[in-house]
Amino acid sequence: MARMKFYCDAERCIECNACVTACKNENEVPWGVNRRRVVTINDGVPGERSLSVACMHCSDAPCATVCPVDCFYTTDDGVVLHDKDICIGCGYCFYACPFGAPQFPDDGAFASRGKMDKCTFCAGGPEEDNSADEYQKYGSNRLSEGKLPLCAEMCSTKALLAGDANVVSDIYRERVIKRGASVLNKGVSYQNASLRASAVLKDK
């Protein structure tokens, strides 16, 4: 079976947030939850990078380890999902996940803490595929229709890659090789390469 993974290429991400919007729209994500977000590092400084993060669908997921009711499971596709019928909304997965993927719905002080919500790799939940119940609880199930998560499909620069880990890594490897010139140049990437170029121009 395939092992589904996301990979976000920081050299390509332009922080357009299309993936965030696409995810919200496609899955009707509950209020207060963002299954996917774009984080920008060193914003406005040379060397700025942006990354789109969501659940990493870890092989040994800490959220599943700490869950007191054991509601997480990994599908045959390697997608980490949780059963909202069992989830009690305690929030331990929220503490355990380094990426902040599982979140509490609802906002505001002393809000009712409902069930946790997280990225499903557009693979729905334990309910029958593409049933109304499944959609209401988890959002759409594109994987069962042979489609990839909408966030990745929407990415205009193809920075966000999703799919079988082997395929994703092949694509990325190819990209890295193509960027070779810049990598050889003291291990910097496109952006730094252009800066270097400007520095060279300045020297001249």
């Binding site: 963002n34 977000r37 984080v39 920008t40 590092i41 914003d43």
Partner: peptide, 17 residues
Amino acid sequence: GKVTSQVKSVDSNVLIN
């Protein structure tokens, strides 16, 4: 530098905790 995110919620600008 500055770490930001357009998404505003708890720790949304923390990439890895």
